[in-house]
């Protein structure tokens, strides 16, 4: 991480009941604002199911974590530090375990993809919004310590008539989620310029999500359809961090 540059981060494992300070204090120091002697802070999206919309939850609505806040897999958090750091999770803590996976071809998942056999299912907000044409901007996050190509990320909008995961970029997802995801372009080697787009269906926009990296997705307004949305994150262990 680079000092004073916001990053979108996720946890690559189940961190259980451990608070955020305990998890990252070893590499980042005391949690909190500088005036309180702290060196780093984290924020999450606000709202009952953590998303932003243009109409009701603007992107300024974030809530700051306290030092004992636990972290959730499959979502991401904004983090900022006052110095350059490599970040490691404290491996000596108890109650840390690998992300729970299931077979990609198991009942209810039924994904056949030559690149992986295990997935982690993470639920997303639904498509209900108060304003026609609005979109929920949701901070998702890689739940594995391995990268994955966005074309290997699968999305499902579950209803009585639909129970199929389709890869990002598939036109079957068009009514519910944009094919593009946005990562925050904050690198250790150059000035920050903003966000970066990854869209597996559009030439020139291929790309991967790295370990511990978060990304924005856009869920589209479908005002009478409260079907359950979820991601199936692929576990591709050949993609070393």
């Amino acid at each position: 991480m680079t000092a004073y540059q916001w990053r979108l981060v996720s946890v690559p494992c189940d961190t259980g009941s451990n608070g955020v300070e305990a998890l990252l204090k070893g590499s980042l120091g005391e949690y909190g604002e500088p005036e309180d002697g702290g060196h780093w802070v984290m924020y999450k999206q606000s709202g009952s199911d953590n998303y932003e919309t243009n109409s009701s939850h603007p992107n300024t609505d974030k809530s700051k974590l306290d030092e004992n806040s636990t972290l959730v897999q499959g979502i991401s958090y904004w983090i900022i530090t006052d110095a350059d750091h490599n970040v490691t999770i404290d491996e000596t803590l108890s109650d840390i375990s690998p992300t729970t996976t299931q077979d990609a071809n198991s009942t209810g998942v039924n994904i056949t993809d030559p690149d992986f056999t295990k997935v982690a299912i993470m639920q997303l907000p639904n498509n209900i919004m108060n304003v026609a044409g609005d979109a929920k901007k949701y901070m998702a996050g890689n739940p594995f310590p391995y990268s994955f190509h966005v074309g290997n990320l699968y999305f499902k909008h579950y209803t009585a008539n639909s129970n199929t995961y389709y890869p990002m970029g598939d036109t079957n997802n068009n009514d519910y989620i944009r094919s593009v995801v946005y990562t925050h372009d904050s690198t250790d080697t150059g000035p920050v310029t903003g966000y970066t787009a990854i869209d597996p269906s559009t030439p020139g926009f291929g790309g991967s999500i790295q370990p511990m990296e978060g990304f924005f997705i856009k869920l589209l307004e479908e005002n009478t359809d409260n079907g359950i949305n979820s991601f199936a994150f692929p576990l591709i262990m050949s993609n070393q961090p």
Partner: peptide
């Protein structure tokens, strides 16, 4: 998985070279 995890996951830079390679 646990070995990699407990070995410490570096939050290193996301490189665009990696993206292009993919």
């Amino acid at each position: 998985l646990a070995t990699v995890l407990l070995g410490g996951v570096l939050l290193s830079a996301t490189t665009l070279d990696a993206h292009e390679g993919n």
